[in-house]
Design a protein around this nucleic acid. Structure first.
Length: 480
RNA sequence: GACCCCAUCGUCUAGCGGUUAGGACAUCACCCUUUCACGGUGGUAACACGAGUUCAAGUCUCGUUGGGGUCGCCA
């Protein structure tokens, strides 16, 4: 069966991770069955609309390669795909639903609704008993015709238990009495999510509805609407939340990472996508690295998880490192270039820098901290030359750096291989361990105890002249 | 408060009645080594609790506890 799924975000800001994961699962359900994935913008709440948010949605989906088959920008046979452009459709169906007995006109003000019978705000939320429900249809219509502001509210008269099946959670049973008769069409004529969703999903022939499990409790209400219209409800796929920690779900508020934040921090889109796919789903074997097209091949709804997953930036970081290492060298260099801006005016060997950096950074942003010494040697303590394993200290350094200073100028072809070979021979000739020359040299060139790259690699990056300068400066500092 | 959902190492998870409870990240140790990292090897670490059902329960049932969600003219 070819599935038709939809990603239906509201343009209220940037794309957060949980949202993107829902989109991914929708995309995968469609593509793993050879079906279509569509994009629908749910902008029925004008107050929450954020300028530019729609572009972020397009941008994000495109960046990760989740292309949609139908959507606001490319059209399709089921448009329009922006809910605000479908206002008339909802109104038509809402009034039809009233005629069918699935809804009624309501004239209560929002204030009346939130007050309990004795006029005080209820401490504990109680079910709203709508007095308008008992108005006769004629009377209600007359008031509507007279221009009185109204909403259309769902009518729930069923008794007993409602049942539905969810692909992830199994069979769910909820008492009709626990459902409230929510507003379907607002005073401003726009539908609420509760209504627009049902209408659109049916009209757009959506087969699988994927959404957060916070919608489980209200699903029977949607089914009642499908039922009233004589429509078949879609297959439900409720997915667990993506959490920040055990208590809090990932939210835009507390500065929790959004997709674009992560990208800005140097995470690769493919790695982010791969990581979130595994947050609530697994392939059934030990594989963890998947491209989008590989996911399309192995994805299976039945392997979706029920329990919430905590977003672990540490594991994402590891995975991102895997992706960075797999990048072609030229590609990595290209991605690294923006981080080299302040070094562009210097005669540094940036291609070689990228080669040294690639296997050891986990995010592109790591490049910043790994390269700070290239501009100039930071102040460092002579104790940096102290290293037991390498058998060096400031005294040894003074001697070995002197030796290096003599031989380095003679190296004609300034490559890592040549330099290493040369210094290794120097060590052998003088009965020293390689580390006794290389370690002090690295400190001299970088001023840091740990660096990306060894002594000779740094020498290549810096270039011959700068290397010789730094060795002289270090010797001076050592009092030689 | 009512209703719904969830529960395996710190984290993501495998497990679908019989396993020495497996993998990955993290962590620790060692190896490799031109520091750090990468890579390699090994270690520490989990079935929330209590009753049942069964020859046998992480796996099924019920309860308890803990956590999350819903109860908006937000989605």
């Amino acid at each position: 069966m070819k599935a038709r799924t939809r990603f239906a975000p509201s343009p209220t800001g940037y794309m957060h991770i949980g949202n993107l994961r829902t989109a991914l699962y929708e995309y995968l359900i469609a593509k793993s069955t050879g079906g279509d994935f569509l994009l629908r913008i749910e902008d029925t709440d004008q107050k929450r609309y954020v300028e530019g948010a729609t572009d972020i949605i397009y941008q994000t989906l495109k960046t990760v390669g989740m292309n949609w088959d139908e959507g606001p920008d490319i059209g399709g046979n089921y448009g329009p795909y922006i809910q605000s452009e479908r206002k008339a459709i909802y109104a038509e169906y809402a009034h039809k639903l009233v005629e069918l007995g699935g809804a009624h006109y309501c004239f209560c003000s929002q204030k009346e609704e939130t007050e309990s019978e004795d006029g005080e705000e209820a401490a504990v939320p109680t079910k709203f008993q709508d007095p308008c429900k008992h108005l006769s249809l004629e009377e209600a219509k007359a008031r509507v015709a007279a221009g009185e502001p109204y909403t259309i509210r769902q009518t729930i008269n069923k008794k007993g238990k409602s049942h539905f099946h969810d692909e992830v959670y199994g069979d769910i049973e909820i008492d009709y009495d626990d459902l409230d008769e929510g507003v379907l069409l607002k005073t401003d004529g726009f539908p609420t999510y509760n209504f627009a969703n049902v209408i659109d999903d049916h009209l757009m022939a959506i087969t699988h509805v994927v959404r957060g499990n916070e919608y489980i409790s209200s699903t029977p209400k949607y089914n009642l609407i499908y039922e009233a219209f004589g429509w078949t409800p879609p297959i439900y796929v409720h997915v667990p939340q993506v959490m920040k920690d055990a208590q809090h779900k990932l939210s835009k508020r507390n500065g929790d990472a959004s997709f674009q934040d992560l990208v800005a921090k140097g995470y690769l889109p493919a790695a982010i996508l791969n990581y979130i796919a595994l947050l609530g789903w697994n392939p059934g074997d030990d594989r963890e690295i998947f491209s989008l097209s590989e996911l399309e091949k192995v994805f299976d709804i039945s392997r979706l998880n029920k329990s919430p997953a905590i977003f672990d930036i540490v594991k994402l970081t590891w995975m991102n490192g895997c992706y960075i290492r797999e990048l072609p060298t030229e590609k990595f260099h290209e991605l690294a270039m923006p981080y080299y801006q302040k070094y562009l005016t210097r005669p540094l060997n940036l291609e070689f820098l990228s080669k040294v950096l690639q296997p050891r950074v986990e995010t592109l942003a790591d490049i910043v901290s790994q390269t700070d010494f290239l501009e100039n040697v930071p102040e460092y303590d002579l104790s940096f030359y102290e290293n037991k394993k390498m058998k060096t200290n400031a005294e040894v350094a003074q001697n070995t750096l002197k030796l290096a200073a003599e031989v380095l100028p003679t190296v004609a072809d300034w490559t890592n291989e040549n330099l290493f070979e040369c210094l290794k021979n120097l060590a052998a000739e003088n009965g020293l361990k390689n580390g006794q020359i290389l370690y002090p040299l690295r400190i001299a060139l970088s001023g840091k105890e740990t660096t990306a790259g060894g002594a000779t690699e740094i020498a290549v990056i810096l270039g011959k002249q700068e290397t010789l300068n730094r060795v002289q400066a270090a010797l001076a500092k050592l009092g030689a």
